[in-house]
Amino acid sequence: MPGRPLKVAWISYFPVEWLPEAPPDFRAMPRHHPASWQRVLFRAWQDQNPGVELHILALRKQFPRSCTFQIAPATFHCIRTIGGLRAPTLFWYDTWLVRRCLRRLQPDLVHAWGTENGAALIAARLPYAYLVTVQGLMTWYCQVVPNAPVYNRMAAWLERRSLSRAPLVTTESRFAVAFVRDHFAPRRILQIEHAPDPVFHQVVRRPPADRIRIVVNGRFHFAKGTDLLLDALSRLPGEQPWELVHIGAATGSWAQALKTRFPETFWERIRFRSGLTLDEVAEELSRATLLISPTRVDVSPNSVKEAVVAGVPVVGARVGGIPDYVLPEKNGVLFEPGNVDSLLHALRHALQHPQFRRGEVDPDTLRRMRDYLSPATMARRFFEAYTQLAPAAAAQSQNQ
């Protein structure tokens, strides 16, 4: 491998429809989860490639067709699948499709993004050195969320099958490192933070002076603590001049039932926005006084990291990776997860804080967090992970 780029194949649910350089019929697809961290890493290597020949394999039944296209430094292999053959076959259908593609590519190593859609399980079945990046911990999710959907419970099963076999696992936050080590005991584990998009590092702050503008960015869902948020806001004094921008639609029976608990005058203070681009999310953060993250279960919420590098004070649950990014009295306030009284106390504290109530944070903390959560740091750390696997990849290649 010395003397040439390291050939890496991603198995990923990569959001190609978000790429402006993608073919027109792919850009016209309904947009799924933006998975911005994968795009950030790809763009970081686009700006400065350390020596990676990147191949991104994405499998989806929604693709208009199977095709291959290039956006340096990557070649995208979009594989259209047949509906109903992925999860029911325990992703053996996917394994067959991926194996057929990789036989042509002969990568030095494979990077499986997540366990949720079978990527880690597929990588374990292939004859290549590989690493797995945790994007969510379904085992933990199913412990916290009652009556978790069947697919989530299946994903938790896949997690147990996949992570314990992986030669190298990367994950974000100290909490996730400890959880993966204690529950799955992979051979090696690295903590690599996923960076927010550079647009959030460049936000120019202009919070309003005449009111408290609160932003929440996440699903309207029990797991995200939406009920706790609304209960806490309803208990603020009526004269408190607050407004809430909720990025994410209020859909489903749980959301509709929750809406009946509060009067119409309460909902008049809340505006829902959905389908936003990253630039539009950054614009909302530029005018936010606070971001609240009331989540009950989250490995490393991207919305919190986006707010942290944008310089928005965060009122966040002391859960998952949030305490790694929200430092009390420096850039936010923490509260006990699932506890509405603790959330209300933290919110009142933030509204009385000399900096947070004006939408300001400690400048030194902001600089440190922007460096810690920078795309350059993420790119360097992932390349280091690849080079750690390179000797094993070379040995495995010689044995094939």
Rank of each mutant, 00 (worst) to 15 (best):
A129H: 06
A129L: 08
A129G: 04
Y130G: 02
Y130W: 14
L131I: 03
L131P: 06
L131K: 08
L131H: 06
L131V: 08
V132R: 04
V132D: 06
V132I: 09
T133Y: 05
T133S: 11
T133D: 01
T133M: 04
T133N: 01
T133G: 05
T133A: 06
T133L: 01
V134H: 01
V134D: 01
V134C: 08
V134G: 00
V134P: 03
V134S: 07
Q135E: 00
Q135D: 04
Q135T: 01
G136M: 00
G136I: 00
L137S: 04
L137Y: 05
L137A: 02
L137N: 01
L137I: 08
M138Q: 12
T139G: 08
T139C: 03
T139P: 04
T139D: 05
W140A: 08
W140G: 01
W140I: 00
Y141V: 05
Y141D: 00
Y141T: 02
Y141A: 03
Y141K: 13
C142M: 06
C142N: 12
C142G: 04
C142R: 06
Q143N: 13
Q143S: 11
Q143I: 08
Q143E: 14
Q143P: 03
V144N: 02
V144R: 11
V144D: 02
V144G: 02
V144W: 07
V144E: 03
V145Q: 02
V145D: 02
V145C: 00
V145Y: 01
V145E: 02
V145W: 04
V145A: 02
P146L: 09
P146N: 09
P146M: 10
P146E: 08
N147D: 15
N147Q: 15
N147R: 15
N147W: 13
N147M: 12
N147S: 15
N147A: 15
N147P: 09
A148L: 12
A148W: 12
A148H: 10
P149R: 12
P149V: 09
P149N: 14
P149L: 14
V150T: 05
V150Y: 03
V150W: 07
V150A: 14
V150D: 09
Y151M: 09
Y151H: 14
Y151K: 13
Y151A: 14
Y151N: 13
N152E: 12
N152M: 09
N152S: 13
R153E: 12
R153D: 10
R153A: 07
R153N: 10
M154T: 14
M154I: 15
M154D: 07
M154V: 15
M154Y: 15
M154S: 09
A155N: 05
A155R: 05
A156N: 10
A156K: 09
A156L: 08
A156S: 11
A156I: 13
A156D: 08
W157N: 07
L158Q: 04
L158M: 06
L158V: 00
L158N: 01
L158E: 01
L158Y: 07
E159V: 09
E159M: 03
R160H: 11
R160I: 01
R160N: 10
R160Y: 09
R160G: 13
R160S: 12
R160L: 08
R160D: 04
